[in-house]
Design a protein around this nucleic acid. Structure first.
Lengths: 246, 246
DNA sequence: CGAGGGGTTGACGCCGATCAAAGCTGGTGG
DNA sequence: CCACCAGCTTTGATCGGCGTCAACCCCTCG
């Protein structure tokens, strides 16, 4: 039985302001990319823009708030929480993805718990606003569809790559995924907490620790000279390691 | 290395006829449920209706056919096939679900391999036809969205319930899922081949065999008197078994 | 009757979970 | 400025679950 209240989640978000969707400089990758600039002038319910510090809970599974979130920067983890307290990270989502979309499909509560990893900048869109926009601009439906298709693809990929094979293979896959999500321009990224990593591939955190140590020893994970916890990895070798038959 | 050509898939489908969507007696649960009856009178590319025997390959991952399929009855398994030949069953899909939707989202090939389990009755819809209908009837987009959301929910549920915990738990979950998908009016269903079951939860087929034997011994899986391979299960007890902390 | 494919069962060995203890780091208060 | 503490990480030792190999059974089909 894992202790459910081990972490204290910090939830104080900072209000940046009312979102200016028509001037949003990253709109081309966002949910509203196909909407005309005039679409946002007459909204009754405002779309607001927030930054959240690390480990903020955006929403919890089963609760009944009425907001969709669109991620402008940072990474959010989606958690499945079972009755017995065990939790698993279902997927990671980054810039340009929308979460909470299940509310649009008749679900009356969120399907997962969403928690930030690192600072996250996002827009909070009331469901009624979505419905209004949808009605006026049918093209929005296509955007939502794309979001869902992408998440479905991601879910399938994870289920396979993190759910199959030995610990060696799965941890290799995990590192590759982290690189993809978190690498900066120079290709460096920080590892997640062991607990988060083990929640992604369903193995114990001690085993993760051992395997990560092994990867360092093999020089497949290389610590940066500078003292922050930045790593680079040998992508090609990790891919091989992830796909050994044995 | 599993032998890739161990099974000979039978692919001879039987053409039932040109689909009569406006008269389809199960249209209310199908992709086209919200379209007017007149929608289908002017289609250039026909929608055809087929039945496929068990183990027919509808399409293979990476190939480039241009059809969406809508399942009228029966069950289809979606396979992920890795480079090293290992395959896993990503999900099962039944009556009323549409597959191959990724083609609508700019994908130029299927993401999975689709194979029938038992006889399957389905409609084969050309992608251009979908595009035409979509253009005329924006409500169709909502239907597609619902399909995707449902499949996403399913994917998440499977990833969790079949990817977490001991063999005891996972096999229990598996049986519950099989019951859900295959049970007839009386609640009886046939087990899949051991190989398919192991492809769903990534354990060896011998272990599956042992665990199934154990469940029979415990009377959680009960063989029907009649000689076909029909089983019923003790749903409540299986659910308990699936969620033990240990 | 023999061959072949699936299913079952047994024996064995290793991988990874678990328990336990000790190192590390950052934050807090004296 | 240092002592202390809490949470995270690492590492060791042990044990059991599950993969693997192998033999055998059963059923179907030629």
């Amino acid at each position: 039985m894992t202790n459910p209240s081990r972490k204290t989640y910090c939830t104080d978000s900072k209000w940046i302001g009312r979102a200016q969707c028509n001037n949003c400089h990253i709109r081309h990758i966002m949910l509203f990319s196909e909407l005309p600039e005039t679409a946002f002038s007459t909204l009754l319910n405002p779309i607001n823009n927030f930054t959240h510090p690390s480990s903020s809970v955006l929403y919890e599974a089963g609760t009944n708030k009425k907001f969709i979130y669109s991620i402008r920067s940072g990474v959010v983890k989606l958690l499945h929480v079972a009755q017995n307290g065990k939790t698993r990270i279902v997927r990671l989502l980054g810039k340009g993805t929308s979460i909470g979309l299940e509310l649009l499909e008749g679900a009356n509560s969120y399907h997962h718990t969403a928690v930030t990893i690192g600072e996250v900048d996002l827009c909070k869109i009331p469901v009624p606003t979505m419905r209004l926009l949808e009605e006026k601009y049918p093209v929005l439906c296509q955007q939502i569809r794309q979001q869902l298709q992408k998440q479905l693809d991601l879910a399938d990929q994870w289920a396979f790559s993190l759910g199959t094979g030995s610990v060696k293979q799965r941890v290799a896959q995990l590192i590759l995924i982290l690189e993809e999500f978190f690498a900066d321009e120079s290709g460096a990224f920080t590892l997640l907490q062991r607990e988060d990593m083990s929640a992604m591939i369903a193995i114990s955190d001690q085993t993760i620790s051992r395997e990560v140590a092994e990867l360092k020893r093999l020089n497949l994970l290389i610590k940066r000279k500078t003292r922050d916890n930045l790593y680079t990895c040998n992508t090609a070798e990790l891919q091989k390691r992830a796909q050994l038959t044995k």
